[in-house]
Design a protein around this nucleic acid. Structure first.
Lengths: 396, 396
DNA sequence: AAGGTTAGTAAAACCTATTAACTAAGTTGA
DNA sequence: TCAACTTAGTTAATAGGTTTTACTAACCTT
């Protein structure tokens, strides 16, 4: 499974060492500023072990020592943080409307980014185009002198769970593309970990991995764009993105929520995507793929049928959120994707529907936090970079 | 997390030893008859390690040596199997219509079973009733001389992911019941691992853990009974059942598939359970909870509206299966629960709907195997026993 | 300034898997 | 029939990691 790491079988002691290293790393990532003693307490490792592991991590540029913090009497502990200065990861998204790239550091800060709004053509030329942009990005002064950990690429379609291959991208017209292989043909790209993943999965992973504050137990990221996808993540020290048998985990855009409803481009009727998606809304408004949906909607905001259309789309989104809750039951929901540019008229009906239809099962327990990412231009690209970091961390 | 084990952080070397022990155990469980050398090859451990671990496992009655098998030249390997003679696990299901109990061995064979068809009253008296039945079961001759690994209890409602507490069983009228605590008050029950889980989760786990032949990567078990639930399992050596934030993973009966449809007992409209469930079908046919659904349906099989009702229910089930595929995308689907007694008239429309609505995403990849359990009387109880074994195995 | 408290380090002991060499037990073929 | 070969499994020494234990460091309280 080239796209995931689950430490499930032992082997040698190296395994244990690497396990401890990444456990400590993830402990600091989840709560920056812990001291060696804190880490020992939290992980169950001894102070001595933590001390020696931290030393190597500091030497290799993954951790840095921070300020002292005194707590009552006794020698104050030395705060530890992920070192944001010595490494970077490249993340890219091949989106339906263009290419987006970021370089970010171990803390998830974007050091440099670029985007080029022009739909990808065929896979080969897109690889060439992306390679050029990547090499331009690597010239950025903020990156100078850092080591590159690798490159993650997010794509708009399911990726095979057994190999890093994009199996189908309906909105690009690509089928079974080994995009990383194409990229490898390009000159001057950096070594390191190379990963390919679905755009929603990558975004979900990034939001979880670089979560500000203590991350939830699990998280679902709904990507509302041309189509509707969803990525799921959970796992304390080793966040895992379930992919499923055919890489279709979270393809909620094609769950049927209106039997006998409108015809979807997938061939079925009543898919969620026929009610809420960039594709369906553009269709209903008579727009082209290149037209700005939010601009058009804003321009026609006064028209009753446009209002009703967006309202219905919002309610369908709320229903999807509810169904997701009764199926995957994540600890947190994040809404992202270009549809978020529609703002209140779409989002408010969605939230209202979600709130109004909490049933007995949900009502009695703590309600689920919902976060909305208004501008998710680089969310997937940064998420792909996060996946690179997670993989590199276990090989430190 | 008393209900799950995920080996994620290291600690000491004991951890590693136990990890290797249960890895080897699960390797033999998944492919019975392997030799020590085979295991070494498959797990990546050395022959020496495998040899010593296998020795302790044989001594402790978890593995037994079988026949020799010669493959070409060279010394023949000694086949290894799980030892079905020295241990047993107790599994029980507190169902809406009665109590079901099994004692089974490490291979998943049911050594003894009993069921008592009378709806559970309040939690306390039910615990007393179950305890009596358990102690009766333990007198069975097939169990004599074996060590009991523990007791697993399956219940018809979501279990809190943080504590072994049944949060809500709408069909029993129970709320926040600590059923294991009640059981512990009863005399003479055996020690060992005690677990509580949702009935669909337990069934899913059991079907996965005791799968005949090589188990799929992941599996979803749809429990079609008074309500509709679903359990999911995946994980090679350490199968994991995701529970979610509030224990609602797989509560697909309350996903909405017909907005504005019939009123569900949960308060919402158009839940799947309003179309396909023992509850809704009895309602439509004017039956009591105690009436046999399958008998009534068979008696009225000639009536057109009954036929249509069952047909619609089957189609709703097929739609649920399809939506599940676009959300959790398991490698295998298993259908169980008392609704399966309705046989062809329900199942055929479900399978037909599922087949007919495979969309582009599904069509190009290998289709998903579907297994139907006609008689799932003891499936959940045996699954609960399987969970006990899995837990006990990591502490061997 | 002495005593108390917590943080972190150093060296030895310990434990487990590996390595490498061995024995065991079958098949093949002259 | 027997030597050569091949694969299975065991044994003893080694290596590599974590822990234990004892220590030093550094700050606060009185």
């Amino acid at each position: 499974m080239p796209n995931s790491f689950t430490p499930q079988t032992a082997g040698d002691l190296n395994y244990l060492k690497s396990l401890n290293r990444s456990t400590i790393l993830s402990t600091v990532r989840r709560s920056p500023g812990l001291s060696r003693a804190d880490i020992a307490l939290e992980t169950g490792l001894t102070k001595a072990t933590v001390g020696s592991v931290v030393q190597t991590l500091v030497e290799r540029g993954w951790l840095r020592e921070g300020e002292l913090h005194a707590r009552g009497g006794g020698r104050p502990g030395r705060a530890l943080y992920l070192d944001g200065e010595r490494h970077y990861m490249l993340g890219a998204e091949v989106g339906v409307k263009g290419l987006r790239l970021v370089a970010c550091n171990l803390v998830g800060e974007i050091l440099a980014s670029s985007h080029q709004e022009a739909p990808p053509a065929d896979p080969v030329s897109t690889a060439t185009r992306l390679a050029k942009l990547l090499n331009q990005l690597r010239e950025a002064p903020a990156i100078a002198g850092r080591r590159c950990l690798g490159l993650g690429v997010a794509v708009p379609g399911p990726v095979s769970p057994t190999a890093p291959i994009l199996s189908l991208a309906p909105n690009l017209g690509w089928i079974d593309v080994d995009f990383l292989a194409l990229l490898r043909e390009e000159p001057d790209l950096p070594d390191g970990v190379w990963l390919l993943d679905n755009e929603a999965n990558a975004a979900a992973f990034g939001e979880f991995y670089f979560f500000e504050g203590m991350p939830p137990e699990s998280l679902a990221y709904i990507s509302a764009d041309i189509g509707i996808g969803c990525g799921v993540v959970s796992g304390e020290h080793f966040p895992v993105v379930p992919r499923g048998y055919q890489g279709l985990v979270g393809e909620i855009g094609h769950t049927v929520i209106q039997p006998g409803g409108a015809l979807c481009h997938c061939g079925n009727r009543g898919c969620a995507e026929t009610l809420v998606s960039g594709w369906a809304l553009r269709e209903s408004l008579g727009l082209d793929i290149d037209d700005s949906l939010s601009a058009s909607v804003q321009a026609r905001a006064g028209e009753a049928d446009v209002q009703a259309l967006i309202q219905r789309a919002g309610e369908a989104l709320g229903l999807l959120m509810l169904n997701l809750h009764h199926t995957l039951n994540p600890s947190m929901l994040i809404l992202g994707g270009s549809l978020m540019w529609l703002k209140g008229p779409l989002i408010e009906p969605a939230l209202a529907y979600f709130e109004a239809h909490q049933n007995d099962l949900l009502r009695q327990s703590q309600s689920v936090p919902i976060k909305i990412i208004e501008d998710s231009t680089f969310t997937a690209a940064r998420g792909a970079a996060a996946q690179v970091m997670a993989r590199a961390a276990i090989e430190v």
